[in-house]
Design a protein around this nucleic acid. Sequence first.
RNA 1: GUGGGUGUAGCUCAGCUGGUUAGAGCACCUGAUUGUGGUUCAGGGGGUCGUGGGUUCAAAUCCCAUCACUCACCCCA
Length: 424
Amino acid sequence: MSDQIRNIKGTKDLLPSESRLWLETESIIHNFMTLHGYSLIRTPIFEKTELFSRSIGQETDIVNKEMYTWDDIDGTSLTLRPELTASVVRSFVQNHLGNLSPLNRLYYIDSSFRRERPQKGRQRQFTQFGIEALGSPNPEQDVEIILIASRIYEMLGIEDLEIHINSIGSTSSRTQYSKSLVEYLERYENELSDISKKRLRTNPLRILDSKSDKDIKILTEAPLISNYLNKNDRKNFDDILKLLDDLGISTIKNPKLVRGLDYYNGMTFEILSNNIGAQSALCGGGRYDKLVEYLGGKSTPAVGFAAGLERLILLLKENKDTNPLNQADIYIIALDESANAYSFSIADKLRNKLGIKVICETLRRSMKAQLREANKNNAKFTILIGDDEIKSNQVIIKNMEDGTQTNALIDDIENYFGVDYEYK
RNA sequence: GUGGGUGUAGCUCAGCUGGUUAGAGCACCUGAUUGUGGUUCAGGGGGUCGUGGGUUCAAAUCCCAUCACUCACCCCA
């Protein structure tokens, strides 16, 4: 017992009791993205470390301490992807997708890895779904992204969500703002939390995101990014807000919303829920117009979002009462070894020709046990095959709901279930 | 990396201030006239009480350590 091998901390097995909900949810996501004109992209689970250190940012926790990184035999540093945008953009550049079409609408649903302390809604291996629209600099593209993100939750029946939105402007606006922010914060440098002190030098915008009470107090008087946006930035953001408003999507302006990753600019947004514990961010995204160029491609404006599937499932589990599994429409009961051949060939026909879910007994249990098993699987019918049936070349078909039984010739079974059989 | 909580059968848990063969519900298996289920009834299997050490005549129960799980901080999906 003690030398049993367990799963790695922060990873999870998807067991039959939950796998159906996952499959359903994933399939909804696939259909939803397709409905909006987005195409699936799938990239390798690991990449050169440099891809992430360059795009996500040297000063982020992700790159600093949360990546699973190792040296390949030839000395190349490799990393299990901690998020998907960098990989998607790498692939976009490498495969010249920008030359094939001026606008690429891509979506993904895949796992990522970060070495953090696990807690509710946070794992070391987790699944993200998201979209990236590469090519359009216009506000309507930003809105399309937010629209899709918000509608997918709406469609899944998830309520009480908040959409926070902000603009961190163009690079020039941001550097100016950053300067003023640093000037302001330096006055309180000694009172800032340790991390924020460090960030004052490395990544001042991130201080806005601080959860430390001291920092929050200091920040109430801090300059706001909205006052530093240039004309273009401001018009852009206003257009986005107006369009969202026209669509009836209500948002909360949050001037302190700074996405954690370095590659963002312009609009940023986050969708939050209060019903999944401390890890309330369901979805985060925004614009990243410089990343493509930064990773060696032609300058291409881009905007997207990433969402946590585990966190979504957490919410879905609250809403959904898991109805019992219908594993089989028909359970075939074999009362003797000699019945196996009949059992299997009948099952084959029903499954392949009529698409009926059929399970055959393989444990050689008593009839009583097999009937119980049929019940557990929610079978509507059982087909009983024993010595007598084989001799007379017919089987007993038993309706498990009302208990009635009829005989049917083995060759006639398809007809019996083919016409007015209801197995839903 | 830091802090809190928990660790008794497959699952959910009970076991008061330490005292004899450790319990319940659910699940599982068997049986209730020998080929008929879902209800009911009867019975059964399964635990070195996370692990190691200590206190004691005696520990699941007290103390220490350790590990695991979990929640929260940090950060993020």
